[in-house]
Protein backbone atom coordinates (compact mmCIF):
# COMPACT_ATOMS: atom_id res chain seq x y z
CA UNK A 1 0.00 0.00 0.00
CA UNK A 2 2.88 2.36 0.76
CA UNK A 3 4.06 2.11 -2.81
CA UNK A 4 0.61 3.14 -4.05
CA UNK A 5 0.51 6.14 -1.70
CA UNK A 6 3.96 7.30 -2.79
CA UNK A 7 3.14 6.77 -6.43
CA UNK A 8 -0.06 8.82 -6.25
CA UNK A 9 1.81 11.54 -4.33
CA UNK A 10 4.51 11.63 -7.00
CA UNK A 11 1.84 11.89 -9.67
CA UNK A 12 0.28 14.84 -7.84
CA UNK A 13 3.70 16.51 -7.62
CA UNK A 14 4.03 16.12 -11.38
CA UNK A 15 0.60 17.77 -11.65
CA UNK A 16 1.91 20.75 -9.71
CA UNK A 17 4.85 21.06 -12.07
CA UNK A 18 2.48 20.87 -15.04
CA UNK A 19 0.32 23.62 -13.58
CA UNK A 20 3.40 25.82 -13.24
CA UNK A 21 3.06 26.41 -16.97
CA UNK A 22 -0.15 28.34 -16.32
CA UNK A 23 1.60 30.51 -13.74
CA UNK A 24 4.33 31.28 -16.23
CA UNK A 25 2.03 31.93 -19.14
CA UNK A 26 -1.29 33.15 -17.69
CA UNK A 27 -2.38 36.37 -19.32
CA UNK A 28 -4.09 37.95 -16.32
CA UNK A 29 -2.98 37.93 -12.66
CA UNK A 30 -6.17 36.05 -11.77
CA UNK A 31 -4.99 33.05 -13.78
CA UNK A 32 -1.76 32.96 -11.83
CA UNK A 33 -3.56 33.10 -8.50
CA UNK A 34 -5.96 30.36 -9.61
CA UNK A 35 -2.98 28.13 -10.34
CA UNK A 36 -1.52 28.95 -6.92
CA UNK A 37 -4.82 27.96 -5.32
CA UNK A 38 -4.74 24.63 -7.14
CA UNK A 39 -1.18 24.10 -5.92
CA UNK A 40 -2.34 24.61 -2.34
CA UNK A 41 -5.06 21.98 -2.65
CA UNK A 42 -2.74 19.54 -4.38
CA UNK A 43 -0.20 20.13 -1.63
CA UNK A 44 -2.83 19.20 0.97
CA UNK A 45 -3.50 15.94 -0.87
CA UNK A 46 0.23 15.18 -1.13
CA UNK A 47 0.71 15.84 2.58
CA UNK A 48 -2.17 13.52 3.51
CA UNK A 49 -0.78 10.75 1.31
CA UNK A 50 2.73 11.19 2.70
CA UNK A 51 1.39 11.13 6.27
CA UNK A 52 0.00 7.68 5.56
CA UNK A 53 3.01 6.43 3.59
CA UNK A 54 5.80 7.66 5.89
CA UNK A 55 3.80 6.87 9.06
CA UNK A 56 4.19 10.47 10.25
CA UNK A 57 0.89 11.66 11.73
CA UNK A 58 2.25 15.17 12.29
CA UNK A 59 1.90 15.79 8.57
CA UNK A 60 -1.88 15.78 8.93
CA UNK A 61 -1.53 18.87 11.11
CA UNK A 62 0.59 20.50 8.42
CA UNK A 63 -2.16 19.71 5.93
CA UNK A 64 -4.73 21.22 8.28
CA UNK A 65 -2.76 24.48 8.51
CA UNK A 66 -2.40 24.51 4.73
CA UNK A 67 -6.15 24.10 4.31
CA UNK A 68 -6.79 26.90 6.79
CA UNK A 69 -4.40 29.41 5.29
CA UNK A 70 -4.71 28.50 1.63
CA UNK A 71 -7.44 31.03 1.06
CA UNK A 72 -5.62 33.88 2.73
CA UNK A 73 -3.47 34.72 -0.28
CA UNK A 74 -6.43 34.69 -2.65
CA UNK A 75 -8.44 36.95 -0.39
CA UNK A 76 -5.51 39.35 -0.04
CA UNK A 77 -5.07 39.25 -3.81
CA UNK A 78 -8.68 40.06 -4.62
CA UNK A 79 -9.26 42.64 -1.93
CA UNK A 80 -5.97 44.51 -1.95
CA UNK A 81 -3.86 43.75 -4.99
CA UNK A 82 -5.88 43.24 -8.13
CA UNK A 83 -7.44 46.14 -9.94
CA UNK A 84 -8.96 44.72 -13.13
CA UNK A 85 -8.42 46.63 -16.36
CA UNK A 86 -11.33 49.04 -16.44
CA UNK A 87 -11.97 49.44 -12.76
CA UNK A 88 -10.84 52.61 -11.02
CA UNK A 89 -9.19 51.69 -7.78
CA UNK A 90 -10.83 53.65 -5.03
CA UNK A 91 -8.69 53.72 -1.95
Amino acid sequence: MDGLYLGVALFLLLNILLGMVRVLRGPSPADRMLAAQLFGTTGVAILLLLAEALAAPALRDVALVFALLGGLTVVAFVRRAWSPPTQVNKE
Binding site: V62, T73, W82
Partner: peptide, 25 residues
Protein backbone atom coordinates in the same frame (compact mmCIF):
# COMPACT_ATOMS: atom_id res chain seq x y z
CA UNK B 1 7.47 18.33 10.13
CA UNK B 2 7.89 21.10 12.72
CA UNK B 3 9.66 23.30 10.20
CA UNK B 4 7.09 22.37 7.58
CA UNK B 5 4.34 23.49 9.94
CA UNK B 6 6.00 26.85 10.54
CA UNK B 7 6.61 27.33 6.84
CA UNK B 8 3.01 26.46 6.00
CA UNK B 9 1.68 28.85 8.62
CA UNK B 10 3.74 31.92 7.92
CA UNK B 11 5.76 31.22 4.84
CA UNK B 12 2.93 30.26 2.52
CA UNK B 13 0.13 32.33 4.01
CA UNK B 14 1.53 35.48 5.51
CA UNK B 15 4.43 36.35 3.21
CA UNK B 16 2.36 36.01 0.06
CA UNK B 17 -0.40 38.17 1.48
CA UNK B 18 2.08 40.86 2.54
CA UNK B 19 3.77 40.91 -0.85
CA UNK B 20 0.46 41.06 -2.73
CA UNK B 21 -0.77 43.88 -0.53
CA UNK B 22 2.36 45.91 -1.21
CA UNK B 23 2.16 45.25 -4.94
CA UNK B 24 -1.40 46.51 -4.97
CA UNK B 25 -0.11 49.73 -3.49
Amino acid sequence: PDVALAEAAIGAGLTGALLLDTLGR
